[in-house]
Computed example of a mutant assay.
Amino acid sequence: MWKRLIGELYEDAEFAPAASDAEIDQIEGRLNQTVPDELRDLLRHTNGARAEWGSGLVWSVEEIIDQNTQFRHDAEFAKLYLPFDELMFFGDNGGGDQFAYAGMASGQNTAVYVWDHETDDRKRVADSLTDYLQRRAGAEDDDWYR
């Protein structure tokens, strides 16, 4: 379902081989957050998807772990921004802003938020991963979420 949806929305979509449940579980172990069911399902079909000149629609398991770990433990970021512990970044716009789930205690929160790297604003932009992919694809510019 996910590869078909993304392929229909983004003609330049690139997919990675599927991630295993053990690989996806590493996100939970390293970030101490539950992976939302819809993200887990997508990663089971493709371990990340890129489009729009290589921007990360949805990152791989490794990218999710690396990016979230970096944001949470970077001393300079701690001086500049509010804490990132409640966010689980999973994609980017190619220009510094990143997309995330927030408040991942139950794993069922499907709302997608954007973090603005210039203002530190965190704003809800979609109701689900599908909604995020559709809104992003239908946008006329990279700042569709503003």
Rank of each mutant, 00 (worst) to 15 (best):
residue 1 M to T: 07
residue 2 W to Q: 02
residue 3 K to S: 08
residue 3 K to G: 07
residue 4 R to L: 07
residue 4 R to M: 07
residue 7 G to D: 01
residue 7 G to F: 02
residue 8 E to H: 13
residue 12 D to S: 15
residue 12 D to H: 14
residue 13 A to K: 11
residue 14 E to R: 12
residue 15 F to A: 14
residue 15 F to L: 14
residue 16 A to D: 11
residue 16 A to P: 03
residue 17 P to C: 10
residue 17 P to E: 15
residue 19 A to C: 02
residue 19 A to Y: 05
residue 21 D to Q: 15
residue 21 D to L: 15
residue 23 E to P: 04
residue 27 I to H: 04
residue 28 E to P: 06
residue 29 G to R: 14
residue 29 G to C: 06
residue 35 V to D: 02
residue 36 P to Q: 09
residue 36 P to K: 12
residue 36 P to W: 09
residue 36 P to H: 10
residue 36 P to S: 12
residue 38 E to P: 01
residue 39 L to D: 01
residue 42 L to T: 11
residue 42 L to N: 07
residue 44 R to W: 06
residue 48 G to E: 04
residue 52 E to I: 09
residue 54 G to A: 08
residue 55 S to D: 09
residue 55 S to K: 11
residue 56 G to N: 11
residue 56 G to A: 07
residue 56 G to S: 09
residue 57 L to W: 02
residue 59 W to V: 00
residue 60 S to I: 11
residue 60 S to A: 11
residue 62 E to A: 11
residue 63 E to P: 01
residue 63 E to D: 14
residue 63 E to T: 10
residue 63 E to H: 10
residue 64 I to H: 01
residue 65 I to S: 05
residue 65 I to P: 04
residue 65 I to H: 05
residue 66 D to E: 14
residue 72 R to W: 07
residue 72 R to I: 05
residue 73 H to T: 13
residue 74 D to N: 15
residue 75 A to I: 07
residue 77 F to D: 00
residue 77 F to E: 00
residue 78 A to C: 05
residue 79 K to M: 06
residue 79 K to N: 06
residue 82 L to W: 03
residue 83 P to T: 03
residue 84 F to N: 00
residue 84 F to L: 06
residue 84 F to S: 03
residue 85 D to K: 14
residue 85 D to G: 14
residue 85 D to C: 11
residue 85 D to Y: 15
residue 87 L to T: 10
residue 88 M to C: 08
residue 88 M to L: 15
residue 88 M to K: 08
residue 91 G to I: 12
residue 91 G to K: 03
residue 92 D to A: 04
residue 92 D to I: 05
residue 95 G to C: 09
residue 96 G to P: 04
residue 96 G to L: 04
residue 97 D to K: 11
residue 97 D to F: 05
residue 98 Q to F: 00
residue 99 F to M: 10
residue 100 A to D: 02
residue 102 A to V: 02
residue 104 M to D: 10
residue 105 A to R: 13
residue 110 T to N: 09
residue 112 V to A: 05
residue 112 V to L: 03
residue 117 H to T: 01
residue 119 T to W: 00
residue 123 K to L: 13
residue 123 K to R: 15
residue 130 T to D: 02
residue 131 D to I: 10
residue 133 L to A: 06
residue 134 Q to C: 08
residue 135 R to V: 06
residue 135 R to N: 04
residue 137 A to C: 10
residue 139 A to D: 13
residue 140 E to M: 04
residue 141 D to H: 15
residue 143 D to N: 15
residue 144 W to F: 12
residue 145 Y to A: 07
